[in-house]
Write a protein that binds this DNA or RNA. Structure first.
Length: 153
DNA sequence: GCCAACGTTGGC
DNA sequence: GCCAACGTTGGC
């Protein structure tokens, strides 16, 4: 069992969208390191924090579960899609994804609150210049943030 | 394989 | 909209 953090722009897919649809394909990852995490390290049943990025209040919004094996991201093949990649071939897809299933919505834990926790000082999300949209979370960070979720601040 | 130029991410 | 940081591209 591994733990992850996955970033989404809530204008595109929010935690409420995930709750409504139950399962969403994690399309649009166009970074090799993030892709490799999904392809090589993720397992069905892994849990992930759902992170809202590029928005008024960036932060962790809930939890999802990885619920599929890897398969090609369809958006890379569509010339009218913003995630179109003309260099990716049907018989050799460059970009892969997995499906995420809704588990729970939490209070929004702002990025600033995460930064203020000494327990999370080593968290990859908070590392200087971090831009990964899919990244691992340690078991210790997972447990600690789950405790934050239960606080009603 | 180096590295400058350019593009993207994402918080603020 | 700004801009720091990082990733990718492409000439050499």
């Amino acid at each position: 069992m591994n733990y992850w953090l996955m970033k989404s722009e809530p204008d595109e897919v929010s935690i409420d969208d995930l709750a409504a649809k139950t399962v969403v394909p994690w399309f649009g990852v166009r970074n090799y390191q993030a892709r490799n995490f999904m392809r090589d390290a993720m397992k069905v049943g892994d849990l992930a924090f759902f992170y809202h990025s590029s928005c008024v209040q960036p932060g962790i919004a809930g939890i999802g579960e990885i619920c599929s094996e890897v398969y090609p991201d369809e958006t890379q093949f569509s010339a009218v899609n913003p995630y179109f990649d003309p260099k990716s071939l049907r018989d050799n897809p460059r970009w892969l994804l997995r499906d995420l299933r809704f588990i729970s919505k939490s209070r929004l834990i702002p990025l600033a609150e995460l930064r203020a926790c000494p327990e999370l000082a080593g968290m990859r999300l908070l590392a200087r210049g971090n831009r990964l949209s899919v990244m691992p979370v340690t078991a210790g960070e997972w447990v600690f943030i789950n405790l934050l979720m239960t606080e009603n601040t």
